[in-house]
Design a protein around this nucleic acid. Structure first.
Lengths: 212, 212
DNA sequence: GATTCTATGTAACCAAAGTTACACAAAGAA
DNA sequence: TTCTTTGTGTAACTTTGGTTACATAGAATC
């Protein structure tokens, strides 16, 4: 288990050491639901390995992807949700096999007091999440479906460091909060335009630059 | 100038006193743009009087309302944006005559260290903003325009403590990120259904319960 | 009161995306 | 192999909301 990536947020080895001492580690399999309604009242979770997909779910069961929590990052929402005891309406699912370190809130507050860098780390995360939520709002409010699909694929490709991703139209539609037929229709259209190449359970990016 | 409402967030009179001492007050008229791109690099703004409207603006000039910052609250976004020096793409405009107290970041960090309640206050605000952004995402992603319009009117009525609000269809459409005609059309429809009563520059809520 | 803004009402049309329904093809299981 | 499940392609249709264009009505100014 490594916390190296925390260094990106200027956490010192000393802090990491304390986190490891204070925290309780827990493992999740791909697809495991980590937060559904309001869990983890007294701890802040840090992803030490793997990644988590965070979604907003509507009353009628529809969902939309908000952001991913990657290695070295924390799930701010469930922290805040827990802290103020209301139903968070955010759902977090393990994207892959994932290790999470749960730090009790008192310890977090102690760390904040002792190490300003730790507070800095938290603020940076907040900032990142805010920006990501704003991106989602922007996409949903102003972008058309084809552009959103393309963006999603590009993001996935970046994450996977590859031009090809394995995903079904069904899954894609769920993440974007639309219907499978819509995705299939637009993807086919994009294939005709030479933007992507389609296969069963497979999408290959051909042109990275978005043609407007 | 009063900071009473801060008490809602458990800030003690002692903290308030210090804030007043540390901060620089500034006044804004209705419609004044407070943040456009990335301003206020070294201060956290607290609304001591009036209220601010925060919007996300698209590249093509379209906008959508995110939330209001009321008396006693702080503009978290511009704080974070300033802290990490990137263009925040959030626009803040004074809804009415507004007084803002700018607290230098060092002082904020000092207060956090000295008074845990202050950190609690900030976390509460973050939480609130997150929830509000999630509400926007939910609305834009899953709700139909008529429902969004009704929600907007209800929120406004609550704020104004009245069943009638003064707003033009034009303004309403801009806040919701749609076109005026669409708003007029749907409002008329809602009037026919007996949900609202329309006048020039005036909308009156008739039925508070949403009929589905 | 006449003129000029500003706000609203409405119609006709179009594009995007949601819906339903079904065919077919690839992959896996029996 | 055959059967079944899973994933994709496509057509036809509907709904929602964006667009354009214009009429009219209330307010404000002259």
């Amino acid at each position: 288990m490594e916390l190296g990536q925390l260094n990106e947020f200027k956490a010192t080895p000393e802090i990491n050491e304390q986190l490891m001492a204070f925290g309780t580690a827990k493992s999740f399999k791909e697809g495991d639901v980590i937060v559904n309604e309001n869990a983890y009242t007294n701890a802040i979770p840090i992803v030490t390995n793997g990644s988590i997909r965070v979604m907003r779910s509507d009353e009628d069961g529809r969902e939309i992807l908000l952001y991913y929590i990657n290695k070295g990052e924390s799930c701010i929402m469930s922290f805040l949700g827990g802290m103020h005891q209301d139903t968070s309406k955010v759902k977090a699912v393990a994207e892959e096999a994932t290790e999470i370190l749960f730090i009790p809130i008192e310890k977090v507050l102690y760390l904040i007091k002792e190490y300003p860098q730790w507070l800095e780390y938290i603020f940076r995360l907040y900032h990142k999440r805010f920006e990501e939520l704003l991106e989602v709002i922007n996409a949903v409010a102003f972008k058309k479906m084809d552009e959103r699909i393309l963006n999603f694929i590009q993001k996935k490709c970046e994450m996977a460091q590859s031009k090809t991703i394995s995903i079904t139209h069904e899954t894609l539609s769920l993440e974007l909060g639309t219907a499978r037929v819509v995705v299939s229709r637009l993807l086919k259209q994009m294939e005709d335009e030479g933007l992507v190449k389609l296969g069963r359970n497979k999408i290959t990016l051909i042109q990275t630059t978005i043609v407007k």
